[in-house]
Design a binder for these strands. Structure first.
Lengths: 354, 354
DNA sequence: ATCACCGGTGGGAGCGCTCCCACCGTACCT
DNA sequence: AGGTACGGTGGGAGCGCTCCCACCGGTGAT
C-alpha cells in the first residue's frame, strides 16, 4: 500500500475558534449557532452569523466527522462496472429521485462504483472507514457479500430491488410480479397465441418475479407454460440479441415476446428485424422499464413502467429515517424491527409495438 | 440550516492505539506500517500487520483527514442536471477513464452533480470543507464561477475541455479544431457542395473550435462560409431537431450536415427523415464523439472520434500530479507554472451516413 | 429573604490520527 | 577508548470540531 502523502496544513481557512473570537463569544456558542441549536439568544446568534459571514467560515467536516461521527453524506453504491451503469436509464432516474429527496437537506450524495474486485475492496475500506452516514444499494445480485458487510458494520442501508422474498435490509422495489403479469395479460388480450419471454439473470429477484408474473398470466388464462418459450438474458442489449436468436431457433412460430427490460427488447427487436419479422404485425413486443429507449424505438415500445424516480426518492427517505434512528441511539434490535419493505406499483404503457 | 444530529460513538472499531498495544509497539510505529514507511524493520512490520489483520483494523479517515489534511478521495464534478449526464455517453467514458487511472491507487472517486443552484451551493460547501484532495471538472461553461472558486480554495483541479484559449487551470481536451476540419474535408471529398453545420452552444470553447474547423476546411478548399448554413444547437437531441428544422427552412438545397455531436446528429436525422431526405443519398451526415449512438444509428453515422476514455485517464493523471505537488509543499506560483494543457488527437471514423 | 429553576453561555476533554522530536542501541570510524 | 552516524522506535502535541458539565444571572415560588 504505497500511499501518497498529502500534507500541508489547512492554511488560511478560519476555524471555529477564530469565529468565536471575532464574535466575542465562546467556541460552544458558535458551534450551537452553526448546528441550529435553539438554545442561543437571538442577539448572540446574529453576532455569530455576522462573524461567520465576514470570515467566510465553513466548518471542517473532517473534524466534525471525527468528533461527532457524522458525515452529512450518503453513498449510492453501484456494484456494476461503470459502463453498465450508464447504459441503463434505470440508474439515471434513481439518481434523480435521490437528488429530489436530498434537496431539502444538507446531505451530499456520493456515487461510487464497485464493479471490479479492486474497486470493491477499495469501497469496503471506504465504508468501513466511516466516511458516509448510510448507503443506498442498487442492482445487487443475490450472492453479493456487500449487504452482509454493511450489516456487520451496522451502517444504515437501503437496497433497491429485494434480493429475495425475505430481505433483511430495508428495501424499495417495484411490483415486478404484477408488471410481468400485466404485460402478458395484455398480449393475450391482443390475441397472441405463442408468447415467449426473455428474462434477466434469475439470481436477480426482480427478474425472477417478472418471470413469475409471465407464468401466472399464462396459467390464469388456462394456457400451458412451455420451457421452450423462456430464454435467459441478462438485461443487456447483447443478451437480448442472444436470447432472441435462441428463441427464434427453438420456436419460429412465436408471435409475441415479453422482454425483461427495454434494453433487452431493443436487442430482441434487432434480431427480429434481421429475421424479417415485422413488429407488431408478425411479432408483438413488450418491454419493461418504460425508459427513453422504449419511446424512441421504432416502432415505439409497449412497456411496463416502474416508478423508478419515486423509488430513488423512497429509498432515500427510508435511509434518512434509519440514519436518524442510529443518531437517536435506538438499539440495533429495535431498528431492525421496523425496517420497511416498500413495493411501488407498476403500470403498463401501451404503444405501437403490441 | 436544520441539520440532523448523527451521534453515537465509534463503537467496536479498533483504533491505532489498540493495534499498537496488541503488536507490542508504539502508535507511531503502527502508523508507519499503515502508511508504508520504509523506516520500519521487517520483523516489526510483520508483527503489526498480524495485529491489524486479527483486529480487522481500518484507519478512520476522518481522523486521518483532520491530522494530515489528506482525503484519499477526488471528486468528479458535473455542473449539469443528472439527466444530461446520463443522456450523454461522453460522461460514461470519462468516468471509465478515471477509473482506469485510479485503479492502482487507494483513491476513491466521488461523483457529484451541481445542476441546480441548491446543489451548487451544497457542493461549494462540500469542497470548501476539504473533503477531497482534488477535483475533476467536466463540461464547464465559460461563465461558470466554479473554477474560480476552486482556484481561490487552492484546491487542485483539472478541467476537461478548456473554456478558452488561455485556460488558467490544467486541462485535457481533444483537438476539436482538427476534428471539425477533418469532418468537413471528408464531406468535400465526397463531392458535397452545400455543407451545413449544427454547433453546440458557442460559449463552450470546444463547440466554437469545431465550428472554426468547419470554416477552415471550407476556406482552404476555396469555398465561401455562408452564415445561413450555420445553426446554433446545444449538443442535445432536441437542439439538433430544432437546428435542423431551421437549416432546412433556410437552405432546402443543402446536401451535407456536420453535426457538433452524435446526439445532435440523431436529432437532425429525425427531422431529415421526416422531411423525406434520404441519408446519405440526399444529405450526408457526420457527427462528433463516435459514441454508441453513432454506431447504432440507421444508417450508421460517420463521426469524429474523441479519445474520451483516454481523456478521463489523462485528467486523472494530471490531477494526481498536482495533488502531489501540493503535498510536497511546492509554492502555488511554481505549481501554476507547470499546469499542463493537454490536447489529444481526434480521428474521423467513416460509416454509411456519408 | 431564601431557594430552586432555567435559559444562556464558556471552555475542558476527547474523537483517532499524523508529525516530529527525542531517544535508543549498534556499527563503524578515528 | 571515545566519538559520530544512523536505522529504528516511542510518545507528546495538535488537527478542528462536538459534547457536556459547570456556571452565570434573572425569575418566580416559598
Amino acid at each position: 500500500m504505497t500511499s501518497r502523502q498529502v500534507r500541508g496544513r489547512n492554511v488560511g481557512r478560519p476555524t471555529l475558534e477564530e469565529v468565536a473570537a471575532r464574535a466575542g463569544v465562546g467556541r460552544g456558542t458558535v458551534s450551537r449557532v452553526i448546528n441550529g441549536s435553539p438554545r442561543v439568544s437571538e442577539q448572540t446568534r446574529q453576532a455569530v452569523e455576522a462573524a461567520v459571514a465576514e470570515l467566510g467560515y465553513v466548518p471542517n467536516t473532517a473534524a466534525r466527522a471525527l468528533a461527532a461521527n457524522r458525515n452529512d453524506a450518503i453513498a449510492l453504491v453501484v456494484p456494476e462496472p461503470e459502463r453498465r451503469f450508464f447504459a441503463e436509464p434505470y440508474f439515471s432516474e434513481i439518481v434523480h429521485g435521490v437528488g429530489v429527496a436530498l434537496a431539502e437537506t444538507e446531505i451530499q450524495l456520493l456515487l461510487t462504483f464497485a464493479g471490479g474486485d479492486r474497486q470493491r475492496q477499495r469501497l469496503a475500506h471506504y465504508l468501513a472507514a466511516q466516511r458516509v452516514d448510510g448507503v443506498l444499494l442498487v442492482s445487487v445480485h443475490a450472492d453479493d457479500p456487500l449487504p452482509d458487510m454493511l450489516a456487520s458494520l451496522d451502517l444504515p442501508a437501503v437496497i433497491s430491488g429485494r434480493r429475495s422474498a425475505d430481505e433483511p435490509l430495508a428495501s424499495v422495489d417495484s411490483d415486478n410480479f404484477a408488471g410481468g403479469r400485466a404485460a402478458v395479460r395484455h398480449l393475450i388480450e391482443r390475441g397472441r397465441s405463442t408468447i415467449a419471454t426473455i428474462t434477466g439473470r434469475l439470481d436477480v429477484y426482480g427478474a425472477q418475479r417478472r418471470l413469475d408474473g409471465y407464468r401466472e398470466a399464462l396459467t390464469e388464462a388456462g394456457r400451458p407454460v412451455e420451457d421452450g418459450l423462456t430464454a435467459i438474458g441478462d438485461f443487456t442489449e447483447e443478451g437480448g440479441r442472444r436470447a432472441m436468436t435462441e428463441l427464434l431457433a427453438r420456436r419460429p412460430d412465436l408471435d409475441a415476446v415479453f422482454a425483461g427490460s427495454d434494453v433487452t427488447a431493443a436487442g430482441a427487436r434487432q434480431v427480429l428485424r434481421e429475421a424479417g419479422r415485422r413488429i407488431p404485425d408478425d411479432v408483438a413486443l413488450v418491454g419493461f422499464d418504460d425508459s427513453a429507449v422504449a419511446r424512441h424505438m421504432d416502432p415505439p415500445l409497449t412497456s411496463v413502467r416502474q416508478p423508478v424516480e419515486e423509488m430513488g426518492q423512497a429509498m432515500t427517505e427510508l435511509l434518512l429515517a434509519e440514519i436518524s434512528a442510529v443518531a437517536d441511539r435506538r438499539p440495533p434490535a429495535s431498528r431492525r424491527m421496523d425496517r420497511q419493505q416498500l413495493v411501488l406499483p407498476t403500470r403498463l404503457v401501451t404503444r405501437q409495438s403490441s
